[in-house]
């Protein structure tokens, strides 16, 4: 009987040691796993701050426009009929609709309430109270980078 008792004490101690080792190991793993994941950078390797790759020059023929994104807000790239590239915020200053380029008018237009902006982003007709915010465009090879002022 005592031998059995002693044996159960030993096995209890071994079980306790095993449990302790495992749970401490698991705790360590739970703490280290996020760390290992954290140090691997995400797909977008950089916080998009004030500059985005808005499009390609070759995809933007004269007298067209293209919507791009600054975070969750839309911007508009415009290539004028004479080939100049400009960029503006695409958020209409009237009720925040997204504006578009109208090749037939050769200027920027908002479909919601027929707001018109010229190719400098200035509100020229309809309800918009203010011009569109203008962005800076940099051309690097075929890439069009748009920078907004901080």
């Amino acid at each position: 009987m005592p031998a059995v008792h002693e044996g159960s004490v030993i096995s209890r101690r071994a079980a306790l040691n095993w449990l302790l080792g495992t749970s401490l190991g698991a705790t360590l793993a739970a703490a280290l796993y996020p760390v290992f994941r954290f140090v691997i950078p995400p797909e977008v390797a950089e916080a998009p701050v004030n500059r985005v790759l808005a499009g390609k020059l070759s995809e933007l023929p004269a007298n067209t426009g293209k919507i791009f994104r600054f975070g969750s807000k839309p911007g508009i790239l415009v290539r004028t009929a004479n080939g100049e590239i400009r960029a503006f915020s695409a958020v209409c200053t009237h009720l925040n609709c997204t504006v578009q380029y109208r090749p037939d008018f050769q200027h920027i237009w908002c479909a919601c309430h027929n707001g018109h902006y010229d190719l400098q982003g200035k509100n020229i007709a309809g309800p918009p109270p203010r011009p569109l915010e203008a962005y800076k465009v940099d051309i690097a090879g075929d890439d069009l980078y748009v920078t907004r002022r901080a």
Binding site: F38, P41, P42
Partner: peptide, 15 residues
């Protein structure tokens, strides 16, 4: 960039 980088850490970086 400070605010955006913290936002980036919180939203985009794993964990």
């Amino acid at each position: 960039a400070a605010f955006e980088s913290v936002q980036f850490i919180v939203t985009r970086v794993p964990f």
